[in-house]
Design a protein around this nucleic acid. Structure first.
Lengths: 214, 214
DNA sequence: GCAAATTAATGATTTATTCAAG
DNA sequence: CTTGAATAAATCATTAATTTGC
């Protein structure tokens, strides 16, 4: 009991990362030889056996599948619901208790242009990202109002965070945001934003895109 | 009441997929404008509001981080155990009470600066996403199991165990790796790399939310 | 097989930190 | 030193998935 004799395999972050990456890359059920290789490789980062690799892939795959199934069923259920009636009316959410300091947001503080290398989105209807990227510098206000369910709810005076309301984020996306609210320009491609120091990858923005609508 | 009294947003599989893909592509804290865009486009797949998008990214990011942290600490704990307690200055889980402002955010400061120039896999690529997308609308059961037939997350490895043992997969890779053991099929090299921590969204069992005092 | 009870996920809120102006 | 914006952590609450007893 002292030194956890030989509990079960506890993947190191590196190992996990690698395994996940492999999974993402398409590996799903490696054969013995592959498992051997993987194991050999991963053993560099910590103790590991072939069965660990084997089980990992098994589990991961199964879980993934489960997740997908779950999503589908949920979605279909939802559809079912929607077909029955119209689910437009959103009852007023719980009352607010604490008026948060909320505040405007897009104060246009730090423009962070982020260059997005590629956004291969294999399936967005009407090439979503393409569009998004395209309008990086133009007024998206007009764009935003285009093509989406305009089931503008009724006046549900939500009590969302102020800033959200103010930004119109509480609407079904049909609301155009006030020009004063959004960053004047530099509406980058869709990647990040933020204050610049935190997470985010402030990669090299030096060379690629300037202000050119390339 | 019949129709979902409208509680909370229930993302459709497509929406989820898109959001996840965006997240993987680097989007973490979209600004108002971006949220608007995203919302507008996602609304094509179902009802959605800006706040949903906002919250989704907040939560996803937070939980991802949490998971990462958990992983790390667990690993280190394990190391402690196995190594028999070596007071190395390993990152320790932040005290639940008074986190000093200075070193606070201990594990949450910059440790997760993950940049991903693109979500390219450092390993061979086989078109992972394509697949996922592909099966979004069709029978997913059976698709995944390319030659395999694992049902739920429980690995019915009763008979796998055998071949595993027989293949010597139960040994620590470093122990031995009979070159003659590997079948000449579909096996190649696995480029490896170890840098940057990348996290994916994998559900894990965590009992974070409990302790409810409600 | 179904329905209540349990449990795990996860959307939505709230609270605390942090950093930058003023 | 104070204030305000922004965001991360913690928490609450509800929904979906499992389990369990009939």
């Amino acid at each position: 009991m002292p030194q956890t004799p030989s509990t079960r395999w506890c993947p190191t972050p590196e190992q996990l990362m690698i395994l996940e990456e492999m999974y993402r890359s398409g590996v799903r059920t490696p054969n013995a030889a592959q498992i051997q290789q993987i194991t050999a490789h991963l053993s560099f980062y910590g103790k590991i056996e072939g069965k660990n690799v084997f089980y990992w892939f098994q589990n991961h795959k199964a879980r993934d599948r489960q997740k997908l199934r779950r999503r589908l069923s949920r979605h279909q259920q939802m559809l079912h619901h929607q077909l029955g009636h119209h689910p437009d009316q959103e009852a007023s959410p719980p009352p607010p208790s604490t008026p948060p300091p909320a505040a405007a947001t897009a104060s246009g503080s730090h423009p962070n242009i982020q260059l997005h290398p590629h956004n291969s989105s294999p399936f967005f209807h009407q090439g979503y990202f393409q569009e998004a990227v395209d309008m990086q510098g133009m007024d998206l206000v007009g764009k935003l109002g285009a093509g989406e369910s305009s089931e503008e709810e009724s006046t549900n005076a939500y009590d969302h965070q102020e800033w959200m309301t103010m930004m119109g984020l509480s609407c079904t996306a049909s609301t155009s945001l006030p020009p004063s609210c959004k960053p004047p320009k530099t509406l980058d491609l869709f990647p990040l934003k933020s204050s610049g120091l935190k997470d985010e990858c402030t990669s090299s923005k030096s060379s690629s895109c300037s202000t050119s609508t390339n």
